[in-house]
Design a protein around this nucleic acid. Structure first.
Lengths: 148, 148
DNA sequence: GTTAATGCAAACGGTTTGCAGGGGT
DNA sequence: ACCCCTGCAAACCGTTTGCATTAAC
């Protein structure tokens, strides 16, 4: 569990974000926020809901969906669409990419700053104004390969 | 419309693929196949269905879905999952990437062979066995920017 | 007190499936 | 005559929405 200081920090951080956005800081939003920060995987709305239910038995799935949509707009989470999977949520807002295991469907973050900084070939950047690039590596993770 | 020779070529190509897979070459499968080859955008199942209905008024949407699933397994099409959009289908099986306009949601193919050939940093390739890489560039296309 | 946010339940929409009938170069 | 494939309709399931109640400010 989180320490009292962490708890206070999370509260202050979300309070600031809510104030800026002009929305209320509710108990549900705070708990979802905390759950996202703690999640080291890339949980679906449903999974977040299941995890929260242990602490908040009455929280409803639609509040989770609504809150995640709000957080997406506020730039607190990013939606992640993996083939044939439900929408996943990533609270890591740093520039990063993903490795997706085609066997267990697990998603791992990966960093490649040199690639992020590299210049796109002219014929590509002429397609339009490129705002972000997201690389998805598909393969089989070490665990599924039995190397771990 | 396609020339008789093209038609014959498409038929032969699909016939070969079906024979190898041990499935029948039906009228519906052939028409969906042709529609995919002609499509220069990245159509959804629904859009393919709408286009086919002009020629085949009785074709059903579930046949389109079933056929696309079959084609996906056979490696004739690739599914493409764009944020908040229905599943799109791409009959271009060459190694390539995508530029997605966040305004009009259009998807454009892009080629970057140097990137495809480049070596991944060691810490990334250690996540597992990487089989493919798919780059998604997000931005605003020239048309939406009013440059065209 | 005012207004936005929540919980409930029902709707929605894309996709899948069970089944009976039809077609296969 | 076999059996796969299709069309119809209904189910499915993740997600969204309308509405009355509750809680934040």
């Amino acid at each position: 569990m989180e320490s009292p200081e962490q708890n206070q920090q999370n509260f202050d951080k979300l309070k600031q974000l809510c104030d800026k956005a002009g929305i209320k800081l509710t108990h549900q939003r705070l708990e979802i926020f905390k759950e996202l920060l703690v999640a080291r995987d890339h949980p679906s709305a449903e999974l977040i809901h299941i995890r929260l239910q242990e602490r908040m038995p009455t929280i409803s799935i639609d509040t989770v969906y609504r809150t995640l949509a709000t957080f997406d707009e506020l730039g607190i989470v990013k939606k992640l669409h993996v083939a044939n999977e439900r929408t996943l949520f990533d609270s890591n807002m740093d520039v990063h990419h993903h490795f997706i295991c085609s066997r267990c469907k697990k998603v791992a973050d990966l960093y490649w700053p040199d690639f992020d900084k590299s210049t796109l070939p002219g014929n590509i950047s002429k397609l339009g104004e490129v705002n972000s690039r997201h690389l998805e590596l598909h393969g089989v993770c070490t665990e599924c390969l039995g190397l771990k």
